[in-house]
């Protein structure tokens, strides 16, 4: 598990491979909460609760999860009507079938259609389909998103650049610790005959939260 943030110089003013600013990490001034994390981690190891290897493995397991996992599920649902039916009927079982660990969470897949658009939020905290998408973006955990998504979802969607016609019903799904939602976007027209891998390439994290819809690239390489 190499971590490349502390053993060499790099440009913190640049963007990471995922296009986000680097957050100062091991090289910034030590904070009270970082001290607490180190202390708690060491005490857990000394008390025999967890081993360093377990902690490393858990960090790696979470790092390995990304929206690409959810995109594979959506692409299969688009390509395989029987899988789609299983996914809608029991999201946890269908994702487990694809090899994604659900850790006992109930996953509900909600499907966008020509007349319905779905949006996912957690008004009480930050519950998110982390097993399929990885950790949630910062904005998902903000007061602004949590408060407004359930009362003025169309305005929220407009802030993300998604303007829906009034003819489309917007359904907002409020997650809980034990029940997580993922949006299955509508398959874009013009993708007939595409491979699952190419289809998955259209499905972004934001599409599966419901603040975006898949867009075809200008030039199609498929």
């Amino acid at each position: 598990m190499p971590h490349d943030g502390h053993d060499h110089d790099h440009d913190h003013d640049g963007l990471s491979p995922s296009g986000h600013p680097y957050r100062k990490d091991n090289d910034g001034p030590l904070t009270h909460w970082q001290i607490m994390e180190i202390a708690v981690r060491e005490l857990l190891v000394e008390k025999g609760i967890a081993t360093p290897a377990e902690i490393t493995a858990q960090v790696a397991a979470m790092d390995a999860r990304s929206p690409a996992d959810g995109a594979r599920v959506v692409a299969r649902a688009w390509a395989d009507p029987e899988f789609r039916a299983r996914l809608i009927a029991d999201g946890s079982a269908a994702c487990t079938e694809m090899g994604f660990a659900m850790d006992g969470l109930k996953l509900v897949a909600v499907e966008n259609t020509a007349s319905v658009h779905n949006l996912v939020v957690c008004t009480l905290c930050s519950c998110y389909p982390r097993n399929l998408l990885g950790l949630p973006p910062d904005w998902y955990k903000t007061r602004a998103y949590r408060s407004r998504a359930v009362i003025e979802p169309r305005r929220v969607l407009a802030e993300f650049g998604l303007d829906l016609p009034d003819s489309v019903t917007v359904r907002v799904h409020d997650s809980t610790a034990d029940m997580r939602y993922i949006v299955v976007p509508a398959r874009p027209a013009g993708t007939e005959g595409w491979s699952e891998a190419d289809l998955a390439g259209l499905v972004t994290r934001d599409c599966m939260i419901g603040v975006a819809v898949p867009k075809l690239p200008e030039t199609v390489s498929a």
Binding site: H3, N26, Q34, E37, I49, L135, A144, R146, S147, R148
Partner: peptide, 30 residues
């Protein structure tokens, strides 16, 4: 806080620092 008035959504994101990932891992493990 669902339904309460609130301001505009700041779309800024950051990549999680190692110490943050470890906090997440400690929670999951515990």
């Amino acid at each position: 806080m669902g339904g309460l008035p609130a301001g505009g959504i700041n779309p800024a994101e950051h990549d999680f620092a190692l110490w943050e990932k470890r906090v997440d891992a400690l929670q999951v493990l515990c």
